[in-house]
Each structure stands twice: as structure tokens, then as C-alpha cells.
Computed example of a mutant assay.
Amino acid sequence: MKISVCIPTYNQSEHIGLTIRSVMVQTLLPDEIIVSDDHSTDNTWKILETLAAEISILRIIRQKFNKGISKNTDSCLREAKGEFIVRLDSDDALLPEYIETLSKLLTHHPNAGYAHAAVREIDQQGYAGEPRRLMRNAGFQRSPDALRAALKGYRVAANILMFRREALEKVEYIQCSQDFAEDYYLSVCIAKAGFGNVYSPQILSAYRVWTDQGNVRKRRKLAEINGLNAVLSDALMPAFAQHHWDTKPVVSAKQRFAIAHSGCLSWKVYSKQEKAELETAILELSSAPATKFFIWTHKNGLGKVLESYQHTAAVIRQNIKKLILTRPQTR
């Protein structure tokens, strides 16, 4: 059984070395590590060249121009020769038992298109933070259940996954044209193709969480909304139709996401033109009366009360989740 690790990267000179070395201390070493540099403008490529001279299984690829997250990741995955393929971001890290544990799960569950696990958050300096676990049972999840679960979002603790190459080939890798939610899109396509997934609650990797310096996340809001629309309209809606299921739950999910993101229309970081583009994207996601009401509320400066309520509800849900996940298991 051959195993590949794929690491798409762009301007991550500070962390790429640690990411690669975390692969090299696995209890089960992969057969190859492929790093695809999306034409970085920092020292990432020089670091990769130095590491490639030291690590025999490391193969590095430099894109001739910046392709963007989706296409660079797709290119990297297509280069892999392994039966199982780990997708790892270049600022995250694997814990030593990641490959051994998840490869066993995929071997034991031949109908799983990918395996994933709980993660430990780390900050920009590498200090450990909170664990992330899913509110679901450990083990295998059937493809129909995965499709229904996808109505609530991308159902992984973090985007650090081990794919079965057969599943990637069946869906023709990443078909999403957006540079946001392409991973969510891929998971829906894999479920639509009939593959389930398998989850371990064991913490097997470190996921880096960044502070939003310079309002970077807010500036990516339009891409986020367009990415979600692509997932729900172009992947999840056809999947429900393929199963001859009622598509109303997908329509409802689109409305929930649209309402959740309508709050950005009250942010001062955007120009008038940018807000107009955001409003258009939100309405493309859902033009339901409830969505229009929330849009009007935020545009007219009345969104603070709604945001306060939504924030309080989110905190309550998060605390309940923590209580459930940390509750001692009884037999």
C-alpha cells in the first residue's frame, strides 16, 4: 500500500519546514511527499530546495504563475501516486500517529472516500489551544448520511484529510472553480459518488488558527459567499436530486447561510460598491423574504440587536457542545 502526502503552499516560509518535518516523524512513513508551491514571493521555494536535497521522498513543484488555492491543490493531488493521499496545509502539522491510524481506518472501511480526525488548535506562534472534535459518532458514515450532514456545513474538524485515490479519481479531483469552500465542495462530490467517510475522535494533527490582521477574512467574504453558493447549488442540490430526495432542505440551508452572512453588510470595512456586490451574492444564495428582511435590517443600521442575539445563541450552542464532548463516557 503506497501513501502520498500532498502539501499545497503559498508564502509559508515560516511554517513549511515544520509541516514537512512533521511528516518525517510518522510512525508509518509515506512513500512520497509532494509540495506544490503556488509561485510564492517569499523564501518558500529556497527552503523547499534545501529540504528536497535532504529528504529523498520529497518532490517539489513550482507553479509558473499563481493559480489560486483550488487549482494549486488540485494539481498537487493529481501528482500523487499513492492509494491513500493525505492533504495537508503548509502551516499545519501531523502528529506522529496520523498516517498509521487513518490508513488503518481506510483499509478497514473500503467504502470510505476519506478519513479524518479531531485536531488540536495552535496559534501563530505554535502554542496549543483548544481541541476540535465533531458532534458525531466515531467510525464510518454512509454517503447518504454524509450528504444530509453537509447541509450544516463542511463536516470535518479541520481540512486535514486522508483520501482514497479511487474516490478522487471518480469525482475527477477538485471541480470547484471557486477559491473558497473547494474542500467542502469536494467532500460533497465524494459523498454524491457513493463514498462514505470515516472519523476518529483521536487528536492526530495540529491546525493553525490565525488572527484576522488587516481584515483579511472580511476582505474574503465575497469569495466565501460565492464558494458556499457553489457547494449548495452546484454540488449538494444535484446530489439530492440524484437520490430523488426533496430538495427543500437544501433551499432552507441556502437561506440559513445567506442570513448568517448578511451581517457583513453593516461592516464599515467595505465600500458602497463592495457592499452592492456582497448583497448580490447573498441574494444569489437565497432571495427568500427572510433573507431580504435581514439584508434590509443590516443595511439600515438595525443589525446590532440581531447580531447580539445570534452571537449569544452561538455561544450557548458552543458551550453545550463542549459539555457533551467533554462528558465522561459511561458504559
Rank of each mutant, 00 (worst) to 15 (best):
A253P: 00
W245E: 05
V171K: 00
E172Y: 15
C6D: 02
G139F: 12
K2N: 09
K254V: 07
K292S: 13
C6V: 01
P144L: 05
R87F: 01
T247C: 03
S40G: 13
V250I: 08
L88F: 01
E130D: 07
I57V: 15
I16S: 03
K299P: 03
I16H: 08
F195V: 03
R219D: 01
G194E: 05
A149M: 07
T50Y: 02
N43P: 06
E279C: 09
A118C: 07
L168W: 02
P96M: 14
Q273P: 09
V5A: 04
R208F: 06
K321V: 09
R136I: 08
Q26G: 07
Q273F: 13
N226K: 12
N11D: 11
K321S: 13
Q273T: 11
R208T: 10
E284M: 14
L228S: 07
V188A: 13
T297E: 04
P289A: 15
I3H: 00
P328T: 14
G139N: 12
E49Q: 14
R217D: 06
G82Q: 02
Q318P: 02
P201T: 07
L278G: 04
R217Q: 12
P238K: 00
W296Q: 11
H261E: 15
Q178F: 15
R21G: 12
A258D: 02
N300D: 01
R220F: 14
S286Q: 01
I160N: 05
T27P: 10
I16F: 10
Y207R: 07
I203Y: 09
R327S: 14
I324M: 10
V25K: 04
D234Q: 09
A241L: 06
H298F: 10
Q318R: 10
H109G: 09
P131I: 09
K321M: 09
I3G: 00
R148I: 04
D234E: 10
A253K: 01
S70R: 14
K64C: 05
A290N: 05
P328N: 12
E97R: 03
I85C: 01
I190V: 02
F84T: 01
A223Y: 07
A138D: 15
K272C: 11
Q202Y: 08
Q12D: 11
K272A: 15
R208M: 10
I69Y: 03
I61W: 13
Q273I: 09
Y207Q: 08
L58H: 04
D37P: 01
N229Y: 08
E49C: 11
L95Q: 08
S308T: 06
A276Y: 02
P144A: 03
S22Y: 08
Q125Y: 04
L58N: 05
S4Y: 02
V188L: 13
K67G: 06
A112F: 13
I61R: 09
